[in-house]
């Protein structure tokens, strides 16, 4: 039972503000991913929860207990580091059992728990080795096993897969998801990789410049981005934006076309649509194809609409050449609107 509450947490380094007034509640057994570009404060936030960094202001609660004045060891957490941090002077067995030994658990219990998590992480044959004799992937398994052996309330992971090669990362990702779901711990996972975030998370907190822009389920973040930043950060290729001028009650003029939109008295808005939610049609936006990239399953067409770059993921059977004029229709229920003043979504 460990719900994590982050209340009004802010962090400044000298005159630089790394985190602005963060409020976030992570439910018991939830898998929360902090996603953002480097320097957005996601690692700082994780380290504040871990107790490796102290917040300038604000409170951290874990399982109904205020922990921000406690040392890392008293918070009921375990952490997996980006560069593994496997102790080089100890065997894999002693690494995994390190925390249990510190907690003065009896030998047979240490042995039982180490062997259990080692089996879980498929490293039972490596228990006698030292870190220097392991590959990167094996070290990461040891690091995860070491955290799991503590049976913590909360497991914190700081880009644990980013040092692995692409194939191994894919494999570890799926494995991690299964193992953590079984372990019933609350997890916070920091990454800059949106695919990793999408595939692992129960909820994603998208961070930008020391603020949480949106905290929602992966599909919600993808479908209904709360702000322009989220729309342009999530999704590959990112969302397309076009300028929309008001054209009467609930009507907006986008690239010469009148489109139904939000009923608001606000000035010009941003019209936004995902590249995969666009179909060629009889009527729609007039686009001039610039670059055509066949990707096997799809055709990625980068075109120009109303002087703005506009990408569309189209059927690969479609015959398009650079310079062709296309008529592209956005799927009406997938269109999103943003206020350029506040950059927030407009319903």
């Amino acid at each position: 039972m460990a719900e994590i509450q982050i209340k009004n947490v802010a962090k400044t380094f000298g005159s630089y503000t790394a985190l602005h007034d963060i409020n976030l509640t992570i439910a018991d057994q939830e898998f929360m991913v902090l996603l953002g570009a480097s320097g957005c404060g996601k690692t700082t936030l994780l380290r504040i929860v871990a107790g490796l960094e102290t917040a300038t202001t604000g409170e951290v609660w874990i399982g109904g207990r205020r922990v921000d004045h406690l040392a890392p060891k008293d918070r009921g957490i375990a952490m997996v580091f980006q560069n593994y941090a496997v102790f080089p002077h100890l065997t894999v067995f002693e690494n995994i059992g390190f925390g249990l030994r510190m907690a003065k658990k009896p030998n047979d219990e240490v042995k039982r728990r180490v062997e259990r998590v080692a089996t879980l992480m498929h490293i039972e044959q490596l228990l006698k080795r030292y870190s220097g004799e392991l590959s990167g992937g094996q070290r990461q398994r040891v690091a995860v096993a070491r955290a799991l052996a503590m049976e913590p309330d909360v497991i914190l992971m700081d880009e644990p897969l980013s040092n692995l090669d692409a194939l191994l990362r894919l494999e570890m990702r799926a494995e991690l998801k299964g193992v953590l779901a079984d372990s019933k711990t609350t997890a916070i996972y920091v990454t800059h990789d949106q695919v990793e975030a999408m595939s692992l998370a129960d909820r994603i907190s998208v961070m930008h410049q020391g603020k949480i822009i949106q905290a929602a389920t992966p599909i919600e973040v993808y479908r209904n981005p709360a702000a322009e930043f989220v729309a342009s950060f999530i999704g590959n290729p990112p969302m397309n934006f076009l300028r929309a001028e008001p054209a009467g009650e609930g009507k907006w003029k986008v690239a010469g076309q009148i489109i139904d939109g939000p009923r608001t008295s606000k000035g010009p808005l941003q019209f936004a649509i995902r590249p995969e939610d666009i179909r060629p049609a009889e009527t729609g936006l007039t686009a001039t194809a610039k670059v055509v990239e066949p990707l096997g399953a799809h055709l990625l067409v980068t075109s120009e609409v109303d002087g703005t770059m506009f990408r569309a993921v189209l059927d690969s059977d479609l015959q398009v050449k650079p310079g062709d004029k296309l008529t592209l229709a956005p799927q009406p229920d997938r269109v999103r609107w943003f206020d350029p003043q506040t950059t927030k979504a407009v319903a």
Binding site: A50, A85, M102
Partner: peptide, 15 residues
């Protein structure tokens, strides 16, 4: 000695 080794120890029950 990487600071992470110490930090890992702190999270694993060390002062």
């Amino acid at each position: 000695i990487p600071i992470e080794l110490e930090e890992a120890a702190w999270t694993l029950g060390c002062t």
